[in-house]
Structures are given as structure tokens and as C-alpha cells.
Design a protein around this nucleic acid. Structure first.
Length: 270
DNA sequence: CTAAGGACCTGTCGGC
DNA sequence: TGCCGACAGGTCCTTA
């Protein structure tokens, strides 16, 4: 479910409910996610006050004085604020209970998500090698050009690589390449710098707009406050194979790149 | 080092 | 109606 806009929407939804609250209890119902939830996580969090809820890439960081709980939503994860004591369903893994009487509940049917611990003076290995935030100044045309230099793999795979830039998943990679007029199958190292500058701008613009709209509603996605996102209405290519290109009317093509569904307009994207 | 493919899970949908 | 395979928002790890 979640790409960067969905994770940011979740962060904004849950942060006001968590910030400043003391954690009264961590209930781990099903510890098996992508990696097991650390057995000592409850002891680290209970009694601590939440200082802030930050986001790095697609990770949420629930920060307390001693460190942070790292939360990744994987493909199917979601978080919700609920009254404490709400009956748990089959895929509800964890409840973070707060003194307010509310709790943060993590649900993740496919279990590709993760809940880990990072001490205050360390950077978790999973975060250590991440690329820049796409909406930051560090991610600019010059940087992307440098990343593409000599790369023979496809441009789509490159922008989806979290070591290059974080937060660009399959939906927004398709959309950004459409906006920039670049064929997703092109070798990254064979695209002119000026066109990569367009792509940089397209990535920023599509992500920023999606965040404004509260993310993209796909199947069961809801943000932290339970409101669905509205970006789906603005998708140009993702999920539209066989339909006409919004720009020129040519039928949109679908191919598989790196095992991911890839939709593009053969007339508009070169 | 790069690039490609498999792996991890469950739910849903379309086709027969 | 029922079963079976294909596919889904991610990304780490292994292999070549």
C-alpha cells in the first residue's frame, strides 16, 4: 500500500495523537513481521514519552528519549488511532497504548512491514545507506545525473532504488516518468542531463501533490485518521493500461520491468 | 561494483 | 458456485 505520500499522510494523521503522550503499554499480539519485533521493545518504550513522530523514506520514527521505534508498513501495512480496548482482528499485530486512552494499532496482512528499535546514538543499518529525501534540496538534477552516469539498468529501476532516492515506489515512478516524457525502459546512463532534470522536477511535483491530497487510495488504504486519500483521481498511467493516454489519446502500454507492472505512453514517452 | 531474479506473506480478482 | 493461478503498494538478499 504505502509509498512516501501514504507514509507521510499516516505520519501527519497519527503524530498529534502521539506527541507528548506517555506510552503506557506495548501489546505485541503477533511478533512475526518481516523481521521479528525485538523482544525487549516493550521494556524500552513503556513509561516513555513520545517526543515526536518523524519520517525517513518510508520509515516512521516514533521518538522517545532513549531512541526510536522504527515502523515500516511494507506492502500492506497501515496504522490507526483507536480507543484502547477495541477488539483486535486477525492481522492486527501491535497496539501502542497511550495514557490518553487511545492507542496506535498496526495492521499488516502480508507481514512485509517491520517494527524495530534504534538507540538514540545510533543509526539503524536499514536507514544508514538510504538516499536523500526526494523533496529535499539534496535531491536535485545534478545529483540524479551523477547517479545515472554509467548505469545500464532501466531508469525506472534506478529511481525506485532507495539507495538512490527514497520514497519513489511503483505508482509514482510510473507517474513521474510519464510527466517527464521518458520511456521507463531506457537505460539510465543514456538519458540527457536536461531530461533528467525534468524527471527530478516530476518526482518532486508528483510526490508533493500526492501528499497534499492525502495519498492515493488503493484497495484498503486509509491514513492515520481513517480518511482515505484522493490522489487516485489524478493518476495518468498507473492502473490504466489499455486506456487512452490523457495527453494524446494513444492506448497506454503495459510491460513488466523488474517484476513490476509498468504503464507508459509509447507516443509521449521516449 | 552492477544488474537481475528470488524470496518473504496474505488477500483478492478474473477466468474456466 | 468453486478452484487455481496471477497479481498487488516494498526491499533485502543471493547469484552471476
Amino acid at each position: 500500500m504505502p509509498e512516501l505520500p501514504e507514509v507521510e499522510t499516516s505520519r501527519a494523521g497519527i503524530a498529534p495523537h502521539l506527541q507528548g503522550q506517555s506510552i503506557s503499554r506495548l501489546v505485541v499480539r503477533r511478533p512475526r513481521l518481516r523481521w521479528p519485533i525485538p523482544a525487549d521493545l516493550a521494556a524500552r518504550l513503556e513509561g516513555q514519552r513520545v517526543l515526536a513522530v518523524h519520517r525517513r523514506g518510508k520509515y516512521l520514527l516514533i521518538e522517545v528519549a532513549a531512541g526510536a521505534a522504527l515502523l515500516h508498513l511494507g506492502m500492506s501495512g497501515s496504522v490507526r488511532i483507536l480507543p484502547r480496548g477495541t477488539p483486535a482482528g486477525k492481522h492486527d499485530h501491535v497496539d501502542l497504548e497511550l495514557e490518553s486512552g487511545q492507542m496506535l494499532r498496526l495492521t499488516d496482512p502480508r507481514r512485509f512491514g517491520a517494527l524495530l528499535w534504534q538507540g538514540a546514538d545510533e543509526v539503524h543499518p536499514l536507514l544508514a545507506s538510504l538516499g536523500p529525501e526526494p523533496l529535499s534540496e539534496a535531491f536535485d538534477a545534478e545529483y540524479l545525473v551523477r547517479c545515472c552516469k554509467g548505469r545500464r539498468g532501466t531508469i525506472k529501476a534506478l529511481i525506485m532504488d532507495s539507495h538512490v532516492v527514497v520514497g519513489v515506489g511503483n505508482i509514482y515512478a510510473n507517474e513521474a516518468l510519464y510527466l517527464a516524457g521518458i520511456d521507463p525502459r531506457r537505460a539510465a546512463g543514456r538519458i540527457a542531463a536536461q531530461r533528467l532534470a525534468c524527471l527530478t522536477a516530476a518526482i518532486k511535483s508528483v510526490l508533493a501533490r500526492a501528499i497534499e491530497q492525502g495519498g492515493t487510495t488503493l484497495r484498503d488504504f486509509v491514513g492515520g485518521d481513517g480518511k482515505p486519500g484522493y490522489f487516485a483521481q489524478q493518476l495518468n498511467v498507473y492502473g490504466r493500461a489499455g486506456a487512452p493516454c490523457p495527453g494524446c489519446g494513444t492506448i497506454l502500454q503495459e510491460v513488466r520491468l523488474a517484476q513490476r507492472s509498468t504503464v507508459y505512453c509509447k507516443a509521449c514517452q521516449k
